[in-house]
Amino acid sequence: MATVDFGGVTKTVCLAYTPDAGIGDYTIIHAGFAIAILDEQAALESLELFEQLGIVSATTDEIAP
């Protein structure tokens, strides 16, 4: 069992399914269990992709006849 901080709110959860989780990891919690460790790199890449989308389509708009 471990304490998870949900952004100012803490709850005790079971880490049996995420044995590799360490202090400082972000996890996905469901029904009192951590079911996945969040991949921060992947999260940042997704956000970066969304940023790019905007820029790419804006550029496309500009060069469109």
Binding site: F6, Y26, L47, L53, G54
Partner: peptide, 19 residues
Amino acid sequence: MKYLSEFADPVLAQRLLDE
């Protein structure tokens, strides 16, 4: 909470909608 509010950003939502 980390990586929650970032994934609710209205500006990026509009970019996805436009796309």
